[in-house]
Design a protein around this nucleic acid. Structure first.
Length: 512
RNA sequence: GACCAAGUAGCUCAGUCGGUAGAGCACAUCCCUUUUAAGGAUGGGGUCCUGGGUUCGAAUCCCAGCUUGGUCACCA
């Protein structure tokens, strides 16, 4: 059944038709040249009232206060809102007052996009406004916009329904201006990181999204099929193995902003597709990478918030480097009293039981240590902290520790009790690498559907020799959440994944 | 995946014990005409998420489902 139009939708369609009858195209083709934006006018005019005396501006009508021979309209452009003063006899020279009485008063609505030319002045109420001399209809809106009103910082009738906000992000962006700010900051974060690496001479690269073997992370992949080659292809879960191949190829430093895809659960901090930045630098180790990471994060914080201090929830975070470094062994010792290095698998298992951590028999030593850290330690690290030296079993792509058997040269950066970045001295011993991947294969055969696949070409690349290299990956969505104090990943993605709308299904079936 | 909550006009929401579907904004008509979320009056607008059930009667109670949110589990 086709959806019937609401009264307001019918009226707006009729208004568009009436415009056409008056010879006004509600969707005109020619460009509309603008020479100013709302924000610069509001900022500069009060200081110099000789400016903006021939202004041309365009935007969406957000409110109208209609009077007899003169009216006030607020339009919104890409950077803000500004009031227009529209006087009948100025937009309608001569006897024909149709443009004002009919087009402006009757046929235009909130949501329509118009362009105006005129001069800037200050009203009796002290508001910088545009005195309109010419009005052009640029686009008729035939679906009513949610009306959000605001006075003295108080929002009335806010458009808040999360389902509609995410499904119809365009609407969210139009009526909730603070939403736009988060996304502008997101882009600024990415640009800051990009500039930082480019200044250091690292090369931004692009590697395959469609991979024959989904490597580089332990995660369930999305699978698809290539018709011509008649082979399965996987959407990448990580780009790590390709970037390391490029280090083998002779680049000193490569990085990529990688959209990764993982066929796993969705919640406030997980979306099936998300963005990770990974960087690999030859002839370095994980201690060097800690310094690069803290330098990068401090710089991002300064670029976004103008200070290294930021609020996350009700906690104040300081991104000023250097960050505290704590080995995983010391962390667990501090928070539980156990020394994991001296304990057998059985002792670790018993210790978990004693601490009421949920464990089972399939868990190896590394997994048990990981559980202890996750349960007892992780949440303590509110300020940025590097946790380093992870158990070998959990880190199949990480170089074995230079001193301690059973550990790897890996660190993660924790912030507000959550993981933000992950880095290693990269494993470049091809024999060790193959053995570790084969161990993953055993896990897979035992039913671990997130164990890594073996990428033999990657091992072959290592056999030719990869210089000692450190690599680091950081979740851009999560970084954006931290930097903008946003608790949900859906609020840092323009179009978060949603279940399909039921209505859309019905329509499709009807049309077929 | 488990549990909890929500779904009523374009938007934000109320709806009592199960008894004719409500408000504000938006919209329309009229009056007023230099206003500031909102001048005044009148009016139109509803698949009460969907499907069953109980009942003389369901927005309301029960069951199932859908969508969204939250918590937990899972996700190094």
């Amino acid at each position: 059944m086709s959806t019937e139009l609401s009264e307001q939708e019918v009226l707006r369609r009729q208004a568009a038709d009436q415009m056409r009858e008056l010879g006004i195209n509600p969707y005109p083709a020619p460009l509309y040249e603008i020479n100013a934006h709302s924000k610069e006018i509001l900022e500069k005019y009060p200081e110099d009232n000789t400016l903006f005396q021939e202004v041309s501006i365009a935007g969406r009508i957000m409110s109208r206060r209609i009077m007899g021979a003169a009216s006030f309209v607020v339009i919104q452009d890409s950077v803000g809102k500004i009031q227009l003063y529209i006087k009948r006899d100025e937009i309608c020279e001569g006897e024909d007052k149709t443009m004002y009485n009919t087009v402006f008063k009757k046929l235009l609505d909130i949501g329509d996009i118009i362009g105006v030319k005129g001069y800037v002045f200050v009203t009796q109420m002290g508001e910088t406004s545009i005195h309109v001399k010419e009005l052009t209809v640029l686009s008729k809106s035939i679906r009513p916009l949610p009306i959000v009103k605001e006075k003295d910082g108080v929002i009335y009738d806010a458009f808040t329904n999360p389902e509609q906000r995410y499904r119809q992000r365009y609407l969210d962006l139009v009526v909730n201006p603070e939403v736009r700010e988060v996304f502008i900051k997101r882009t600024k974060i990415i640009n800051t990181i990009r500039n930082f690496f480019n200044e250091k001479g690292y090369l931004e690269v692009e590697t395959p999204v469609l991979q024959p073997i989904p490597g580089g992370a332990a995660a369930r992949p999305f699978i698809t099929h290539h018709n011509t080659l008649d082979i399965p292809l996987y959407l990448r879960v990580a780009n790590e193995l390709y970037l390391k191949r490029l280090i083998v190829g002779g680049f000193d430093g490569v990085y990529e902003f990688s959209r990764n895809f993982r066929n796993e659960g969705m919640d406030r901090t997980h979306n099936p597709e998300f963005t990770c930045m990974e960087i690999y630098v030859a002839y370095t180790d994980y201690f060097w990478m800690m310094e690069l990471t803290e330098e990068m994060i401090e710089r991002v914080a300064l670029a976004i918030n103008g200070t290294t201090k930021a609020m996350i929830g009700d906690k104040e975070i300081d991104f000023k480097r250097p960050y505290k470094r704590v080995s995983m062994r010391d962390s667990i010792m501090e928070h539980t009293g156990y020394d994991i290095l001296t304990m057998s698998e059985k002792e670790l298992f018993e210790a978990c039981k004693a601490m009421k951590i949920d464990v089972d028999n399939t868990m190896g030593k590394g997994k048990l240590i990981d559980e202890i850290f996750g349960e007892k330690c992780e949440h303590h690290y509110i300020q940025p902290t590097f946790i380093y030296d992870y158990p070998k079993e959990m880190s199949p792509l990480t170089k074995a520790h230079r001193e301690t058997e059973g550990l790897t040269e890996r660190f993660e950066l924790f912030l507000n009790g959550k993981e933000l970045a992950n880095a290693y001295s990269e494993l470049n011993d091809p024999i060790d690498q193959l053995e570790r991947l084969q161990h993953q294969l055993h896990l897979q055969e035992r039913g671990d559907d997130e164990a890594m696949f073996i990428d033999h070409d990657f091992v072959r690349a290592l056999e030719y020799g990869m210089p000692p290299t450190s690599g680091m990956g950081i979740g851009i969505d999560r970084l954006t959440m931290f930097m903008t104090n946003t608790p949900s990943i859906q609020d840092v993605l323009f179009f978060p994944q949603m279940k399909p709308e039921k209505v859309a299904d019905n329509n499709t079936q009807e049309e077929v």
